[in-house]
Design a protein around this nucleic acid. Structure first.
Lengths: 104, 104
DNA sequence: TCCTCTATTTTTAGGTA
DNA sequence: CTACCTAAAAATAGAGG
């Protein structure tokens, strides 16, 4: 009856693994939903498994696609901004080096 | 000193919200990683926030892209299979109806 | 198989350094 | 701001129907 602390390894027993998957899927989806509420942010999640006939999606397949594509867009924008910043940094360095050279 | 049960609403206090975000981000990433180990499945997660300079990715940006594109491919395949199944179902229905008609 | 129960572990909100 | 602490809440492994 005593519940032992489980080791973090693959669950070989089929039914245990399925039970754990179902419980943790529920838990994970709840966490995703809570984070959205607590922090006022867009979140989405999608999971499929041999144990479910349909993929589990939060909050909806449409929102999933929307959140993900917005996310990708922002990542690209940020990368571009980073590159611009690096370019600016580099050109400032060049200006400084050129000034150094002129002094001598 | 008594900790009250928190309501599931947006956290208006900036520093509390940030603290909660950071803690829950860590928790969420751990859950995603655990699910992968326990159930032997591909998982991935990505999060960005005004509180982090870089997006948090699990297990890596490359794996994130790979897992997601594989996921999308599987979803498409399943949709196609469903359509084929529906077509087969419909054509079987038609065969039956035609047989019914022939009998009369 | 699927649900429910519950002891135990795990997470975490709020406090302090 | 960050890091640690801890009581309390929440998640969940395993058992039982």
């Amino acid at each position: 009856m005593i519940r032992t602390k489980v080791k973090l390894t693959y669950i070989t027993n089929d039914s245990s693994r399925k039970a754990t998957y179902k419980k943790r899927k529920k838990g994970l989806m709840e966490k995703v939903s809570e984070l959205s509420t607590y922090c006022g942010i867009d979140t989405c999640a999608i999971m499929r498994s041999p144990y479910d006939s349909q993929p589990e999606v939060w909050p909806s397949l449409l929102r999933f696609e929307q959140v993900l594509s917005k996310f990708k867009m922002i990542l690209k924008m940020e990368q571009r901004k980073n590159m611009v910043n690096q370019e600016r940094f580099l050109s400032q360095r060049i200006v400084k080096v050129v000034e150094q050279i002129k002094k001598h």
